[in-house]
Amino acid sequence: MENSHLIFVLLSSVLVLGDGSSRNLPILSFDEGYSQLFGDDNLIVLKDGKSVHLSLDERTGSGFVSQDLYFHGFFSASIKLPADYTAGVVVAFYMSNGDIFEKNHDEIDFEFLGNIRGKEWRIQTNIYGNGSTIAGREERYGLWFDPSDDFHQYSILWTHTHIIFYVDDVAIGEIRRTETMGGDFPSKPMTLYATIWDASKWATNGGKYKVNYKYAPYIAEFSNFVLHGCAVDPIDLTSFKCETTPNPNPILTGITPSQRAKMESFRKKHMQYSYCYDKIRYKTPPSECVFNVKEAERLKKFDPVTFGGGHNRHHGKRYRRSRTAASI
Rank of each mutant, 00 (worst) to 15 (best):
F302T: 02
G114C: 03
R281S: 13
D236P: 01
G142E: 14
T253W: 05
L237R: 09
G49I: 02
K268N: 15
P246V: 08
E139G: 00
G114P: 00
K210T: 06
F112W: 05
H5S: 12
V305I: 10
S187T: 11
R23W: 06
F165L: 01
S274C: 12
K279N: 03
D41W: 04
Y273S: 11
N212I: 05
L113K: 01
T195V: 13
K241D: 01
I156H: 06
S327W: 11
E120F: 09
I164V: 15
P234W: 02
N104R: 12
I251P: 01
N42I: 02
D149Y: 06
K317F: 00
E243D: 05
D106Q: 11
F64H: 04
I116C: 12
M271C: 12
R260F: 04
Y128T: 09
W202P: 00
V290K: 15
A87V: 03
I280F: 15
S148Q: 08
S265T: 15
F112I: 02
D236W: 06
N205C: 10
Y218F: 15
E221S: 13
I116N: 12
A216V: 04
D41M: 06
H152W: 02
F75T: 01
T178P: 01
I219Y: 06
S4F: 10
I235L: 14
P250Q: 01
T204Q: 12
A77S: 11
P147C: 02
R137T: 00
D57E: 04
F110C: 04
R122E: 08
S76A: 13
F112Y: 05
L81F: 01
G33M: 12
W158P: 02
